[in-house]
């Protein structure tokens, strides 16, 4: 069991208050997508939930206990995190990098034991297999493409074997195919291991398609939360993004599909539009 909750959470950088009095729950065993406009506080909320940012008021609890009162290493065995800008050291191999995710599980002397197939080697192996990075294992991380590299970082988070995994915009800078690949992978993880996954995501349509639960934020507060079908509506897109749109059922998944309108495309195209091209 790993229930992550925020109660009356206030988060701020120096004097600037970003999130104020926010309470929510990350449903256990689900994929939760946190969406909202730029600077709405969604990444800050994730930083608060993952103890990167200490709340100035309120509390974040995991199974009822304040995450800041728990020993950091013990917490790291339950609550994993992939930050937005992790750094790959020069010349590190994929296997080595993934292995560093084992830190919370290793004692000082255990970390030196190599050679025999320990549970750590097996965990690394599983993580490489799950993310289809096994064939890259001996390559240098610097040589990989953006999509491969993101898979390797996810592999590292998997090697940590936590019940909850928080990811801050894991698809940024990836092309559409790789975005889908990463989200498929995280869904696999959720389905096969029951990992609770929470993702801050920019793309509203992908969020709606992959989410069991959507949290929509505006100005540091939650505007709506629940299943995508309930949360992602034309009214919500107007309120959160200030954008007129049509929301139609995604023909593939049935989830809400947001079609932005903008100034150059009319909301209701004339049905006789083709006639205009007749000479």
């Amino acid at each position: 069991m790993a229930q992550l909750s925020a109660g009356s959470l206030t988060l701020q950088y120096e004097q600037r208050r970003v999130v104020e009095g926010l309470s929510t729950q990350i449903p256990e065993g689900n994929v939760t997508m946190i969406v909202g406009a730029n600077a709405c506080g969604k990444s800050t909320l994730l930083r608060g939930l993952s103890r990167l940012l200490k709340p100035s008021a309120g509390v974040v609890t995991l199974d009822g206990k304040d995450i800041h009162s728990r020993p950091a290493r013990e917490l790291a065995r339950t609550l994993g995190l992939l930050p937005q800008h992790p750094v790959a050291p020069d010349g590190i191999t994929v296997r080595e990098l993934v292995g560093r995710g084992r830190y919370p599980h290793q004692g000082f002397f255990r970390s030196w034991r190599t050679g025999d197939k320990s549970e750590h080697d097996l965990a690394v192996q599983r993580a490489l297999e799950t993310t289809s990075t096994l064939e890259l294992a001996e390559r240098n991380v610097d040589e990989l493409s953006g999509g491969q590299r993101q898979r390797v970082w996810i592999a590292m988070a998997l090697a940590q074997e936590t019940e909850v995994l928080l990811l801050d915009e894991p698809t940024t800078y990836l092309d559409l195919a790789h975005q889908v690949e990463v989200l498929d992978l995280l869904t696999d993880l959720n389905r096969s291991r029951g990992t609770t996954v929470a993702i801050v995501l920019h793309d509203l349509n992908l969020a709606a398609r992959y989410a069991d639960h959507v949290i929509a934020m505006k100005a540091g507060a939650i505007v709506a939360e629940g299943p995508a079908e309930v949360v992602v509506t034309e009214d919500l897109v107007r309120e959160v993004f200030g954008l007129e749109s049509r929301v139609v059922p995604d023909p593939l998944s049935g989830t809400p599909l947001v079609l932005p309108i903008g100034r150059h495309h009319t909301a209701a195209p004339p049905s006789d539009i083709e006639l205009e091209f007749v000479p």
């Binding site: 990167l52 950091a72 013990e74 790291a76 992939l82 930050p83 992790p86 050291p89 830190y103």
Partner: peptide, 10 residues
């Protein structure tokens, strides 16, 4: 791996 990652690892 970066400060955030180090904190995430405990």
């Amino acid at each position: 791996l970066g400060d955030d990652m180090a904190r995430g690892l405990g």
